[in-house]
Amino acid sequence: MTHVHGRIWRDGKTADDFEFSAISEYLATEGTLLWCDIYDPDHATLKSLAEEIGLNEWAVEDAIADAERTKAVVYKTHTFFTVYDVWVKDPAPEDNSESTLEIHRISGFVLPRGLITVRISPHVDMEKVSRRYDDLGGQEHGVGSLVHALLDVVVDGHFAAVQSLDDGIESLEDDLFAERPLRGRLQRRTFQLRKDLVALRRVVLPMREVVTALQHRRLDARNAVELDAVYADLYDHVLRASEWTESLRDMVTTVFETNLSLQDARLNIVMKKLTGWAAIIAVPTAITGFYGQNVDYPGIDTVGGFVTSTSIIVVLVIVLYWTFKARDWL
């Protein structure tokens, strides 16, 4: 079932008479700004709207497709873009290996006097976009400011997601060098963080091209200088998120490789200690085995023979233990 929410501004002032059937009239009226948000659209409704206001048919198909990459495509009468909003959710306390990210797609059609957003997921806070737009007084700057408010909220979500993954990697580093690290859980968390980072990287890195295309292809020319400044700031935030994501990729790879190196080092230490103790145990085994021969030898069946063999065992074991300990073999 298609859900539609819309807002209208006339001469910079909010109007309350939005009607979905009158979208083409709003877009044709001078001094009017339209924002129409369509959630869970059926193909027939969106296709009818596209024919009414002249949207590209391939862009319409991309807006409701199951999977699309982050992108912006410029057409003659409008610009189509697809971005992803990222939410950070709290992991279950008993399972730290669960993903902490939720990724939701938002598609948009930017027209000279309006923005039409299409989304499949209900878990996108479009009211936050509306509040951000109102707080900035965006009615004075046209549709370019409305698009900026949407992208600004999306990029803020990217920053929150990158910060969450950064905290997760720092937690991994603490567990990695713990006295008794839980190897199984550590490996599961590392693998999940790598998966989340790959998914986040796919939606963050292409945002640079999206912001550039929307900034340079604004169909409204009002307050161009002010919008250039805010878009430049937005582009800087996108670059920072992209660079941060790339650095986390190196960090999680380092954690993974360090974990393998520590496991090899601990295995070598264990083998070294086992070998040292085996050498120490071999001494009394050899002595008792020698005196266990079925031949007569000095001290057989005497207390002196028992004391002598026992003393030899104790002295040699102490010497070997001290030698191995001094060389850090135990």
Score class of each variant (00 low, 15 high):
V118P: 03
Y231R: 06
I53M: 02
I169C: 08
H3G: 02
L186M: 13
R202M: 11
V147C: 08
E102K: 06
V86Q: 09
D134S: 11
R266F: 08
D174W: 03
Q263T: 12
V203K: 06
D42L: 07
A213C: 00
H158K: 13
P91G: 06
T245W: 07
L111F: 08
G299E: 01
K195E: 13
V295K: 04
L234Y: 09
A15L: 12
D135Q: 11
D250T: 08
K325N: 14
Y75P: 05
Q293F: 01
S164E: 11
D90I: 00
R69F: 01
I103R: 09
R10P: 08
P298W: 05
K273H: 10
M207I: 15
L27I: 10
I106Q: 06
D135L: 14
L136I: 09
E140G: 08
Y26G: 03
R7K: 13
Q192N: 12
F18I: 13
R131E: 14
L274Q: 15
E257G: 08
R217E: 14
P93G: 05
I281C: 10
V83P: 00
V162C: 12
D167C: 00
S97K: 03
S145R: 15
E68Y: 02
H3N: 12
Q215M: 15
T245C: 04
Y84C: 05
R202I: 09
T308V: 08
D220Y: 12
I287P: 01
R201T: 11
L248T: 02
C36F: 06
H237Q: 12
R194G: 15
A286L: 15
Q187A: 14
V295Y: 05
A279S: 14
E57G: 01
P41E: 07
S107E: 02
Y231C: 02
R208M: 12
V252N: 10
V60R: 00
F324W: 12
S164K: 12
V314K: 00
A63S: 10
V83Q: 04
K272T: 15
V230H: 01
I8W: 04
V118C: 04
V255D: 08
H43N: 10
V307L: 06
A160N: 11
L176G: 07
G138R: 13
S311F: 11
V88A: 13
G276P: 04
D135P: 01
V225G: 01
S121W: 00
A279V: 15
L55M: 03
L27N: 07
L197H: 15
Y231Q: 03
I38W: 02
L101W: 05
E98N: 03
A282N: 08
H104P: 02
H104L: 01
D328M: 11
A44I: 02
L186W: 10
F109S: 03
